[in-house]
Design a binder for these strands. Structure first.
Length: 444
RNA sequence: GGAGAGGUGGCUGAGCGGCUUAAAGCAACGGUUUGCUAAACCGUCGUACUGGUUUAAACCGGUACCGGGGGUUCGAAUCCCCCCCUCUCCGCCA
């Protein structure tokens, strides 16, 4: 959520953001609703003042024991005269109430309208974000690692998984429908090894590991920016008014929602492994083969909550990006980092860097990590604040990045580390998590 | 799932239709005094929206908020209805 004052002062900035990000938002209407809302509020406030003051006077008129009443009698007023006065007041207040009623209703509806409109305002992209309409216009920043040249014909991960009996897509689909799978034997172990390596690396860097709910209240989805815009992408448990999260970013970022933190506690660095649920609505027919686009996966996510300082946010953004790069490097995989363009940016992100890892079966780099910074966008929705040194309450900044998501990362891992005989070399860093095994081979 | 008891400011805790703009205490912050720690005294001490004003910070107002939402009333923390949450006991269960 953005600051309405900023929208009022500089509506063009947000219209521009709406256009560049291709996020629909009617700024003119919002400003109109805002003006109406304030007008109604002022009118209502003055009526409420009248009502309160008149009500207090009425109480005095009706109470013969009150100081006011005694003084009035002393000044020569008869009880009858006071009663006439009270009745007149009563009538006046009835009238005030009658006038308030329709305004109360309008106040309610106009505020709802305002709140709904505010949820659609996009966060303008940062100055270093390339302008573009979709992911084809993302700008490559750097390539790291050599792309392996095979001296045999490499197999894709689906074939490898089938032959080694470590991935069973067919039965996964039979159990749970399309975009589902079963990991088996060393496949299951490799999956967990990757996640555990990632988490250990984060803990070593001072991130506090957490386990978090994955079925959360809708306001948590709204607070992190996934609702209402991304409602289609989430699995809903409507009976309980809850949603399954698509990432642990949601519960981690919302963990301190509604709190006013002490600046001395910042920055907070959290990581969590969680299962992620995605409907992949609108992606029908896209990436249907293999483990690339699936409904359910596990991910270790990193989240930072820091003070309201853009320079610091930018610095920490680089830090969480580096954390992820180190994980990919530990897995001995070649990757590139791209600066995501405006059109491929979400509503709330100021800037996003994706790490794309080389995937031989796709003959291209494929997205494996996504590092975003939000400034106040999520904090405002979540009422996530802190008191600064001047005792002023301010909104935090939030950032997040993937540490590793599996099984997607198993695609390059299996494909790039395969041998001509169909076995797979396990990278050094993973071996401690695989009982020191060096190679995945067919089970006897 | 059943029965009961509760939800008031950072915390404790009064208030149960109108001198409540929520008492008091604790904690916190600022100051005075003594000066090693500490103590005493005085003051400040919520959040949101909003008006005035200002370059701004700050300042001065208004309204709302006593778990959430409705209702009764001129007036609700207080009365009524619905929901949520917490605690205790029982039941069920990985």
């Amino acid at each position: 959520m953005m600051d309405i004052k900023q929208v009022r002062e500089n509506p063009d900035r947000f219209k521009e953001a709406s256009r560049l990000k291709n996020v629909p938002c009617d700024i003119d209407k919002l400003i109109e609703v805002d003006a109406r809302r304030r007008a109604v509020q002022q009118e209502l406030e003055s009526l409420r003042t009248q009502s309160r003051e008149g009500g207090q006077q009425l109480a005095l008129c009706r109470n013969p024991k009150s100081e006011w009443y005694k003084r009035a009698v002393q000044n020569g007023k008869t009880p009858e005269e006071i009663k006439v006065e009270a009745d007149r007041l009563q009538k006046e207040l009835n009238d005030v109430k009658a006038r308030s009623k329709p305004l109360e209703d309008e106040d309610r509806t106009v505020n709802e309208e305002f709140a709904a409109a505010m949820l659609t305002v996009p966060q303008p992209a940062g100055p270093d974000v390339p302008v573009g309409s979709d992911d084809t216009e993302n700008v490559e920043l750097r390539r790291v690692g050599e792309i392996r040249q095979f001296d045999f014909k490499p197999k894709d991960h689906v074939t490898l998984g089938q032959e080694l009996d470590i991935i069973d897509i067919e039965r996964g689909v039979r159990l749970a429908g399309s975009r589902n799978y079963v990991l088996k034997g060393d496949g299951a172990l490799l999956h967990q090894a990757v996640l555990r390596l990632a988490q250990d690396m984060m803990v070593q860097r001072g991130f506090v590991p957490m386990t978090v709910p994955v079925l959360v209240r809708e306001e948590v989805m709204t607070g992190t920016g996934y609702f209402p815009g991304g409602r289609e992408q989430a699995y809903l448990c409507e009976r309980d008014e809850k949603a399954l999260v698509g990432t642990a970013e949601v519960p981690l970022t919302a963990y301190h929602a509604g709190e006013i933190l002490d600046e001395s506690r910042l920055p907070l660095k959290y990581c969590a492994q969680s299962t992620c649920f995605r409907r992949e609505a609108g992606a029908a027919g896209k990436d249907t083969a293999g483990l690339y686009r699936i409904h359910l996966f596990d991910k270790v996510e990193q989240v930072i909550i820091c003070r309201n300082d853009e320079e610091l946010s930018i610095k920490l953004h680089a830090e969480i990006l580096q954390n992820a790069e180190d994980v990919v490097a530990a897995l001995e995989l070649p990757y590139r980092v791209v600066n995501v363009c405006t059109g491929d940016l979400g509503q709330g992100q100021v800037q996003k860097f994706d790490i794309e890892t080389w995937m031989p079966s796709r003959d291209s780099y494929g997205e494996t990590h996504s590092a975003s910074r939000f400034y106040e966008f999520q904090s405002r929705r979540l009422m996530l604040r802190y008191k600064d040194a001047q005792k002023k309450t301010r909104f935090c900044h939030t950032l997040n990045n993937t540490v590793v998501a599996s099984p997607r990362i198993l695609i390059p891992l299996l494909e790039l580390h395969q041998n001509a005989d169909g076995t797979i070399n396990i990278p050094q860093a993973l071996r401690p998590y695989m009982n020191n095994k060096e190679r995945i081979e067919p089970r006897p």
